[in-house]
Design a protein around this nucleic acid. Structure first.
Lengths: 254, 254
DNA sequence: TCATGTGAACCCGTTCACAGCT
DNA sequence: AGCTGTGAACGGGTTCACATGA
């Protein structure tokens, strides 16, 4: 496979740190809430609280986008919603295909948060002939035979894999060959993709295991410390949320 | 907040970095696969490839657990499976409750990867009276009125929230009050919890937005790079050339 | 005066390269 | 010889603290 050089051009201007990118959706959601309540401006402190991060981090994040705030005042909510949306590419339409319409696939198809932002479910695809034609979330499921045509006809560049792990890699290969360059993988498998293709994974089992690790440690410390709520290490402080895998966007090379 | 002193007491023994913990499940999965194929030993190189990380990182990760390998040979698969399982706390049983049995909740209840490791679905809980009694994944759904009793009767310390975002915080509060100290949140909301409670979130919408960001950037670079006789693998779709605001000059507000 | 924007210090995680053991 | 285990260099991200400017 011609491993074309991705040519990372050290774009200092558009060089937004990955960690910042991962938080932009969080800010956007908080801002959308404020917007719906017609709040005109927010301070970094308020917005940070709503998004569950600290204000210094938020200001630093925004500084990568530009100087969108007003000193002594704060940020204009509507303006910021627009800027972040544009930065994330949500001002355009992203047709998405979901492959593997089992319980999870159906759940995602029905998920409202999809369409609310620029994403549109262009097609639901399943390998089971019995599924073909069935309506899920108001969309007819199509057989996987036509996967390639569906991708190209709809200009799909983002694919969601919700198949059993045994076929995830094959599905991934076909998606990539058909032109998909971003994949969201729910199957518990390590996907191998060519350079230039982004893969992000969501793995329930891994999340639970991480929780179990901390849970076990709590129990151990509890016993050792006798009683009393001793938070200690484990969680940072406020808002202990953490993305899937810390950060690492899982941009896997071939 | 209350954590006045971080006091990292040189806990060399149990001081496993968070990033390492997040990868242990990955190693465990790869090892389980090898175990099933009766492979006796693996080198860091092989195992790393199977887990999708590089070997230096893997060795460093394992070094935090102890010296479980044999120089010149590699790691004993079975032994490592046991050690990692133990470290993650998977040698014990973790009863889990799922709150919110919609599409997603049902999907998770049916998810096999659950029981395969130490996790057991102790109860399915929903606020809809019409759901009560219905069987999902062979388990009868219970009404949320009994949430507290269910938690304590089963000694549940891990809860999964798959409710609509509007009620996620309330559900979270009740879970925590009832004794749950680890929460896996699928609702697109920032949960606020007391110190000592772990929250991990899984957010489809955020993942897609991150992918969209990179996707947009790919399209932008493609256009900027002129034609590019060296297409990065598959980036040959001409569909994404609508970059109207590829890089709009920052328009300052007032 | 107030909150943003940012250099600098700091911390964590990754990578390198080789010492150490089998 | 071969592969693990790890000190040290490196780099990205977070936090601090204050200069900057409305």
């Amino acid at each position: 496979m011609a491993t074309g050089r991705t040519h990372r051009p050290a774009t200092r201007s558009r060089g937004i740190p990955e960690a910042t990118v991962a938080r932009l959706p969080l800010y956007l959601r908080a801002l959308t809430g404020l917007s719906e309540r017609s709040v005109p401006t927010v301070s970094s402190e308020e917005l940070a609280a709503a998004a569950g991060v600290n204000s210094a981090k938020l200001r630093k994040d925004f500084s990568y986008l530009g100087s969108y705030g007003t000193r002594g005042v704060g940020y204009d909510v509507e303006y910021l919603v627009y800027q972040i949306s544009r930065e994330l590419g949500l001002t355009q339409d992203w047709p998405v295909v979901i492959v593997g319409i089992g319980n999870l696939g159906a759940a995602l198809a029905n998920y409202g948060g999809f369409a609310s932002r620029g994403f549109r479910v262009a097609a639901l695809i399943d390998a089971d002939p019995a599924m073909a034609g069935k309506q899920v979330a108001g969309i007819a499921v199509q057989h996987s035979d036509g996967l390639e045509k569906i991708i190209s006809d709809n200009g799909v560049s983002i694919g969601v894999i919700t198949t059993p792990p045994s076929v995830a890699q094959q599905v991934c290969d076909r998606l990539v060959a058909a032109g998909v360059t971003s994949i969201l993988n729910f199957a518990p498998t390590v996907l191998t993709v060519p350079d230039g293709v982004d893969v992000r994974k969501v793995d329930l089992s891994i999340e639970l295991q991480i929780l179990a690790f901390h849970e076990q440690r709590k129990a151990g410390e509890e016993a050792a410390a006798g009683d009393g709520v001793v938070p200690t290490a484990v969680t940072r402080d406020d808002t202990t949320d953490q993305g899937p895998d810390g950060d690492v966007p899982a941009v896997m090379p071939a």
